[in-house]
Design a protein around this nucleic acid. Structure first.
Length: 486
DNA sequence: CCCCATGATTTTTT
DNA sequence: AAAAAATCATGGGG
């Protein structure tokens, strides 16, 4: 796509314009002169009067003038200019001009092309939309570096998809720049050409009748021509973008598993918020940051917020789909977080030097505690299983142990559910109460121990207690790996 | 080579 | 708009 194409096309356009004019002239000649026994517009035979009087000279005059007009487009510019001047000064000029006007009006040549207004070409719309979507068109976002900086700033420091992305961005910016410069060029050329043609026509309008309508039409034609060129430009740009996309995005689509640590972190969060595994935007950012930092093994494994979102989306759905499969994992992470919590608690206790009733010391004591927790969970699970016979309901507020039975009664497990409406409403009110009372619980972002039992602040995702009666992790719950704490 | 776990994308639902 | 669900595509392990 280059300027030359454009110029060539413009020239076409000009040629067309000229042809048009020539045609008009010809038909004018043909029609108007027919009455005077002049045949055909092309070769004006030398006038011949039928009465050899004074009129003969005048007729000859007119014939001459017409002939000159007819051939004006065949002549070189200088010649034509000279002739034109001559014609303009000719004494018969005004009369001839008015005659031409009259004829033209009669033949109705001026009225065409008034209709056919812009049909909003769907193809072009499509291209436009696409360019807009790609950020090629639309508001200028500054240079590539500026855009990158903006992106970084927007993400609040969560080092966004930088490596390949910046490359992609740079290329995209390049394309955009080319696109814009070309577009500008075209626009400029179009304007230039339009003014040129308009001047030409205006100039000619002294010699022959040209209505403003016609000029308008010419301009319209030119613009259409130019916009078709623009479409080519857009098309090419789109193609370029597509290629770029296929090269980068498709490459990006190539799945690379997250690092072990990253999955650990995510899983930890997931299972410790099992009652409501919907991290807020900030939480996601934090997780993303944590993941990419902890990973530190470089190798471009930075994790973005949207990746965190993806992960949670996938996790939720897959967990729900087959809870049994995740049971082990769940217990594992539950234990982990329990350990962490215990750690924290112990530390706190020690720091405050309070020998409180619960846990005096560290070490295996914690193990003890986590065991307790685990068994507690088992109890809960058993309880719920007794009531429901099935597992995981997902659209009830998570409730504490106390409410477990209630929700179980409600039993809207997605496997086989039958609900009494009245019970439902009761539970609903209950949920209300819970959500009000438990407000601070999760809201502080604090980890409520490990999950299933914290009164979750809001409903929606129900932590699924173990489905089958097989709860206990194969390995003793107490054996919990000490490799856990990060 | 097949299977399946998994990250990403697309479509549907809410 | 966000989540769920469906689907795609790849890579690692058997």
């Amino acid at each position: 796509m280059s300027f030359s194409i454009c110029v060539a096309q413009c020239t076409d356009s000009l040629a067309a314009t000229m042809d048009d004019q020539a045609r008009i002239m010809q038909s004018i000649g043909g029609v108007s002169l027919a009455g005077h026994s002049v045949q055909g517009g092309m070769a004006l035979p030398p006038p011949h009067g039928h009465d050899g009087t004074d009129g003969d000279g005048r007729k000859q005059d007119i014939g001459d003038i017409l002939h000159q007009i007819m051939t004006i487009t065949d002549q070189s510019l200088d010649e034509a200019q000279a002739k034109k001047h001559g014609l303009n000064c000719h004494r018969m000029k005004p009369a001839l001009f008015s005659v031409l006007c009259e004829i033209k009006e009669k033949t109705g040549l001026s009225i065409r092309g008034a209709q056919e207004e812009d049909p909003p070409d769907p193809q072009l719309m499509r291209l436009d939309n696409m360019l807009l979507a790609e950020g090629v068109a639309g508001p200028e976002k500054g240079g590539g570096s500026a855009a990158a900086a903006a992106a970084a700033a927007a993400s609040g420091g969560a080092a966004d998809n930088s490596i390949e992305h910046s490359d992609y961005r740079a290329k995209l910016t390049q394309i955009r720049q080319i696109y814009h410069t070309e577009l500008e060029k075209y626009e400029q050329a179009c304007n230039e050409f339009t003014t040129h043609v308009m001047n030409l026509l205006r100039e000619q309008s002294r010699t022959r009748p040209i209505s403003p309508k016609e000029i308008e039409r010419m301009v319209g034609i030119i613009h259409r021509k130019f916009s078709s060129i623009q479409m080519q430009l857009k098309q090419s740009t789109c193609e370029a973008v597509m290629i770029l996309r296929s090269r980068f995005l498709d490459a990006r689509r190539k799945r690379r598993n997250f690092s072990k640590q990253a999955t650990e972190i995510l899983n930890e969060y997931f299972y410790s918020h099992l009652s409501n595994p919907y991290p807020s935007e900030e939480a996601k950012e934090e997780l993303a940051k944590k993941c990419s930092i902890t990973v530190s093994q470089g190798v471009g494994s930075t994790i973005t917020v949207s990746q965190v979102s993806n992960w949670f989306g996938n996790k939720r759905i897959r967990y729900k789909k087959n809870i049994g499969k995740f049971q082990e994992e769940a217990n594992l992470y539950a234990a982990k977080t329990a350990v962490n919590a215990a750690h924290a608690a112990a530390a706190a206790v020690q720091n405050s030097q309070a020998n409180s009733p619960t846990t005096p010391n560290s070490g295996f004591q914690m193990k003890d505690e986590e065991f307790q927790l685990d068994s507690a969970e088992s109890k809960n699970t058993l309880l719920s299983n007794m009531f429901t016979g099935s597992s995981g309901s997902f659209n009830l507020p998570n409730s504490g142990d106390m409410f477990l039975s209630m929700q179980s009664l409600n039993g809207d497990s997605y496997q086989g559910a039958q609900v009494g409406a009245n019970v439902q409403s009761q539970v609903d009110t209950l949920r209300h109460v819970i959500s009000q009372t438990a407000g601070y619980n999760d809201a502080l972002g604090g980890n409520t121990m490990y999950s299933p039992h914290g009164l979750s602040a809001n409903g929606g995702w129900q932590d699924a207690t173990t489905p089958s009666s097989v709860i206990s992790p194969t390995e003793g719950p107490g054996s919990v790996h000490s490799d856990t704490s990060n």
